[in-house]
Amino acid sequence: MKLSKNKSFKAIVRPFWESNPIHIQMLGICSALAVTVQMKTALVMALSMTFVVSTSSLVVSLIRKWIPANIRIIVELAIVSTLVIIIDEFLRAFFYDISKQLSVFVGLIITNCIVLGRTEAFALSNPPHLAWLDGVGNGFGYGFVLILVSFFREFLGSGKVFGIQVIPKSIYVAGYEDSGFMLLAPAAFIIIGLLVWLQKSVSARKD
């Protein structure tokens, strides 16, 4: 069996590019605009998101046979929100500065359509290991876009990568200025738009 035909492999790789939650499914855009000013916050957000999607998918998949169909959405929500609150408390205890910057956006993972979408569409009808891999894949797919967008925004907006100054002082002296626009939300829209363009033209060529 070829690796690319393997179900587990598909579950984790598909959401990374082919069906990426952000630039293909257009989910989770709101947080992608808000937390991508710096790479550090984007990374922490991506990891939190991965933890929440994968764990909630795993839990929902484990108990999928017992979940009564009529209350399944609220059950999924209860599981997701419990996990989100736990990760929020954890960040507040151990990554205080970052949690302050992320402010409400960690809490808002609850309302992020990616999480509920994956538990409802995939975890409810698939075995635990696939559901978990699908969660990890979607988390990484989301995180991949977040980090890519935040790289451009931080690099062009403040001349830094991961908080380290990479554009040397001499260039500023020569008249270069950071683009303040990159720090605003519309810049993320434009970068995501360009990503969508790139993705579409690459897939079109394949077909």
């Binding site: 059950v75 209860a78 599981i79 929100s81 419990t82 609150i85 736990i86 408390e89 954890f90 205890a93």
Partner: peptide, 23 residues
């Protein structure tokens, strides 16, 4: 359904309490 909801609430509640008071 009611039983399931009850057990779920209890489990989630316990986990949240533990996380909140522990941290």
């Amino acid at each position: 359904s009611i039983c399931f909801a009850g057990v779920l609430c209890l489990t989630c509640g316990l986990m949240l309490t533990a996380a909140s008071s522990g941290l």
